[in-house]
Structures are given as C-alpha cells and as structure tokens.
Amino acid sequence: MITLHDIHKYYRTGDQPLHVLKGVDLHIREGELVAIMGSSGSGKSTLLNILGVLDSFDRGTYTLAGQAIGNLSETDSARLRNRLLGFVFQSFNLLPFKNAAENVALPLYYQGVGRKERNYRAEKFLDMVGLSDRKTFMPNQLSGGQKQRVAIARALVAGPKVILADEPTGALDSKTTQEIMALLKEIHSRGNTLIIVTHEQDVANQTERQIILKDGMVATSHTQPQAA
C-alpha cells in the first residue's frame, strides 16, 4: 500500500538547512495497523506529513496505492488527499461553526457529492462511531473523546485507502484513550490501513507493528506477537 524509499527532507530555517529525514525506507501493507514512534525531534511528524501528502520531500521515492507521489501540484495533492487519505489530528481540527454531521460531510463536499447524499453518508458514519444522538451538536458542545470520534468519522467518510492519525489520543485522558483506541482497532478490523503516530507506548503496543524513528531514520521495525 505504501512504499517509501530513501526519503530525505530538509527544513530551511536560518542559513543552515536542517536535515530532518535522512533516508527513510518503509513499507506498509494493505490492511496493516502500524505505529510510528520516536522521541521529539526524531522526525515522526514530518514523516506523517509526507505520508499524508501534506508536505513535500527533497529526495527519494514514495508510492501510495500504486501511485508515485512527488512533485505534485497543490491541486493534484489536494485531490489525492481527498480520495486516498483520511486524517485524524491530535487537536481534532473540527470547524467550530459546523455541527458534527456537517464536519463529517466536508470531504464529500470537496468530492462534489450532493448535499442529500453527503448528509446521509455523514450520519451513517456518525452512527458507526457511536454518536447517533450527537449529530447536530456543535464541536464546543462535545467532549474531547466525542470530538475525536467526529474526526474519525470524517476521516472515514470518503472511503480512503489509508488513515493517518497524528497523536490521536494526545489530548485525551486514559479512559477516553482506551475508547478511541478500541474504535480505531475496530475500524482496522474492517480492513482499513491505519498509521498512528504516537509517543505513548501503551498506544503503540496495541498495534501490529511499531516503527521507531531515530535521528531521521527508521531505527527498528518489528512486528508484535501480542497484537491482535
């Protein structure tokens, strides 16, 4: 599903370019649930942004669902994100002036899906994440866990190939973290490919594989026997 080969990324801050990713090689199969870990500054967020076609890279090759990524125009990468990827963020990133269902329906709007169909599908996915009774609630009327459920429904609604979660439980307490992880695992069990960036070991432990980044390179990548 995802193949990275020798990915390099520099940030131009000041006069000395910062070499963040120093040749990342990575392969993620369809239907996998992986965690990307690493200490702060290891480049894991940068890697996630590159995986999510949110940021460009300077060297290497990236293949996503059989499609070579690299030097895409803004418009093409936006279409790609819309079609192939779903995002879950640490800070939820719901639009504050839209209710839960409207937030979920947003990716469909950019696919040109009609309003009726959008609402229908959005509500179906809210049912799936267990928010049937919160469909018209505004984000500020929802708890953190509920917001993240809305965000997960939004990530799923357009039928993406890969779901990228950046610290999805970073802003949640441990009980809610467990609920969200259970939801993500359930989604995975339906055949979705999930990549979770986290620094929490007990979150990572619930995945099939942990990829540990160190100094801008993949340090270890091992399959966990205890994972479901």
């Binding site: 803004e74 418009t75 279409r79 994100r81 639009l95 947003l106 950019y110 357009a158």
Partner: peptide
Amino acid sequence: TKEIGVRKALGATPFS
C-alpha cells in the same frame, strides 16, 4: 488560516 488548512487537508484545492 486554520480553517483553510483543515479544508486543504480534507481535499480542498487551492482553486476552491
């Protein structure tokens, strides 16, 4: 800006 960023992540093209 933040809203625009979110929309772009969800697939809004620069033109839109």
